[in-house]
Design a protein around this nucleic acid. Sequence first.
RNA 1: GCCGGUGUGGCGGAAUUGGUAGACGCAGCAGACUCAAAAUCUGCCAUGGGCAACCAUGUGUCGGUUCGACUCCGACCACCGGCACCA
Length: 890
Amino acid sequence: MQERYDPTTVESQAQAHWETTGAFAVGEDPARPKYYCLSMFPYPSGRLHMGHVRNYTIGDVITRFMRKQGYNVLQPMGWDAFGLPAENAAMANGVPPAKWTYDNIAYMKGQLRSLGFAIDWSRELATCQPEYYRWNQWLFLRMLEKGIAYKKTGVVNWDPIDQTVLANEQVIDGRGWRTGAPVEKREIPMYYLRITDYSQDLLEALDTLPGWPERVRTMQANWIGRSEGVRVGFPYELDGEKHTLNVFTTRADTLMGVTFCAVAPEHPLATHAARNNPQLAAFIEECKQGTAMEAELAVMEKKGLPTGLSVTHPLSGEEIPVWVGNYVLMTYGEGAVMGVPAHDERDFEFANRYGLSIQQVIENASVYTEALKQEHPREKYKDLYFDSKHWKTWYGSKAPGEVLVCNSGKYDGMTYPQAVDAIAADLQARGLGEKQVQWRLRNWGISRQRYWGCPVPLIHCPSCGDVPVPDKDLPVVLPEGLVPDGSGNPLNKTASFYQCKCPKCGGDARRETDTMDTFVDSSWYFMRFACAGNDQAMVDQRADYWMPVDQYIGGIEHAILHLLYSRFWTRVMSDLGLVKVREPFQNLLTQGMVLNDIYSRKGDDGRIQYFNPADVTVQVDAKGSRIGSTLIADGQPVEWEGMRTMSKSKNNGVDPQKLVAEYGADSIRLFMMFKAPPEDTLEWSDDGVEGAARFMRRLWRMVYEHVASVATAGSVAAPVTGEGLTDEQRSVRRAAHATLAKVTDDIGRRRIFNTAIAAVMEFMNTLAKFEDRSPRGRAVVQESLELIVQMLSPIVPHMTHVLWQELGHTDALIDRPWPQPDPQALVQDSVEIVVQVNGKLRGRVSVPAAADDAQIQQAALADAGVQKWVEGKPVRKVIVVKGKLVNVVV
RNA sequence: GCCGGUGUGGCGGAAUUGGUAGACGCAGCAGACUCAAAAUCUGCCAUGGGCAACCAUGUGUCGGUUCGACUCCGACCACCGGCACCA
């Protein structure tokens, strides 16, 4: 055995073994339970970043662990290869997106291989391959037939100078990223998928996913956003015709407090009113300025203008003025809201700004008590509700029983649910409303006015209209040699693509040049992995074998959109009879981001320059606190801006390849798994990697010294059992098996790897102090080292592969079943009990493991340290927690 | 703005079901080995007081529940993720 640990030799040796034995290729095996372990596939951006390394290491640890548990484990890998960055790179370098993408894939695949992931590469796919995306097109056509896909106009960000649609990312401070022109909203025709048909199903089925993080399920539920309320119709007359303005409200109990209605700028009523009202027309035009992003709309100053029209209150018959409000969203509900300024914060703000009246119709019974009514009679009370600080307490609650309706005639004194029921019933009787369920979820617009994506398979014929591409003509292949220049989709300028014949009438027609949202590509790739190589069908029965994905791993940033779209797409495929599964992902692990320090310096020209943390040294004081940082190159100070996700713009990226070359893949993998729990953010640290490498060398040396001692002093004793061991030998053995139990639980159940590694480290500290070199002692060491090597094998597979052989084994560690802790080794004679007096730690006692409560209590009270605090005070109560602690209350 | 999350020593984190706060590691300090350095090994390492035994304080802030709270409840502060065309 080599005395020194050399990662390069070790890793090539292990990888060669896996390569030649085809260790990672899997097929359908009815004899074993299957396990599908999937990490979110990467966008081929150029090189692997640390987030990828973290993601795939987590997946690999689980894959290797489950394999050792006897499962037939599939871990595939592919490329989310369509998307905007390829077009940006094309614009910058003049290289077609296809070439850039395929070059990146080749490079990144090499990186993944060097990290030793147990990936079945025979199933690799890239979403930009026609063999893949033809099935996007095929399923889209099925959705058209079923009415799930349809055409409608949608709002996009429009750059008026480049005359092109901008992605949200391409809008910087409300301006086009290339032109700097203020962005406008524009309506264009698009294709949509009716995900809202599945709202109820998508929401209810969240309860069938206990293996998903609670927060993700909550976020999805809120995103789908089911709310129960009432549709209220406000009748009005226009040009002698009767109409109704519909609004949706969850607070029908406040209906008698409506003092205005507000409609979205795009609402038909607004459009109508603006015809003879230039001021209003100008306001609506102004609302078209700015982006289509909801986050931006939500923080905008609330503005409005009266339409000059009014509607009739459905119950009181009062005239209610109609306003146009920039905060009313056309995409939610009816695109119109009723305004109850006394009991809605936003309406309150709006009414105050425009001098609209405020009518209180609810009093808070629990807060506005009889005593307070004496103190604050109505007149005084009035002032209070303009006091926004108290607004929430006094008016914001709708908890039943807490608030009662007032100033509302026959509804006075009713609670929230009573009033909603009564008002809904009265509205229904008049044909002016009813109870309604409203969803926040919107249908999925999939059209993108971009080149590097999957073509939408439609043909526009002047005589036949929109004609689907016949299945026999699929795929509609995207030409790969084009280079976008920023002035829109190059497909629009490529006659060989868009010129075509109508499949119906054979006349000249124009092919659709929009491509699909890349979320389409990622909505079903996991099913395609199961059916690699099938060129006759989208999926086959192999998908039924492998699906659902047993463990899905990816970034928390995908908690809503990607996962929801995948759940929807899987349902559509299920409804079409293509697959049996309805929920694609059984268990979900959302890994945290990888952060690194940011260092900057303001240049003479006032521009901020960022320096890579590798080029900076940090000064610390005697305690190790950070006191400053300087650039190595010039020794001058640089500013530390804290830690953020690794990015090009902040120049704080770390190149995985360099690290693998320097420390080996195992040390990087170990560091990533040890530094933080998988769901938390991970702060990068070069010192931490150094520490991981130190641990690797330590383990290597321990095995080396053991193997050498066996070579010189003869073989170890027969395999150890509990029989005839010294106390020390027994205690080491107990520690070894207790560590195994903990590591098995941490990896297998808790999916927390940092504590598993810490437990192994702790045990290695114990083992290092064990100096018994008798044959029995060496047998205990042999067993301990074998367990350590096996426990670490999912995390550092290369080194453990080699050490396993050095420990005298001829089988390959990857196929070795996971060890079981020996129950006999875990038995303890006595346990330490912590003794508290009034909840404060005052002593420790050792009691036999079998001691009952009374014996434990007696031992606790007899302890000298405890006596000191109990003496002279009556003992009121003694709480005994078996095997753990005693609390004496005096 | 809305939805979700996080907050513990100099730093990353541990404490799994309400039961010993700070495991494990990084950094730091001291020492051993060495001509020296690297590597390695040993010890110390929350804060304040004390020679020490020990005592008090301490898990973002304020308040509550409990024999007992990092953990549960209420209010607040700060930061992070998402908000439908980045992936």
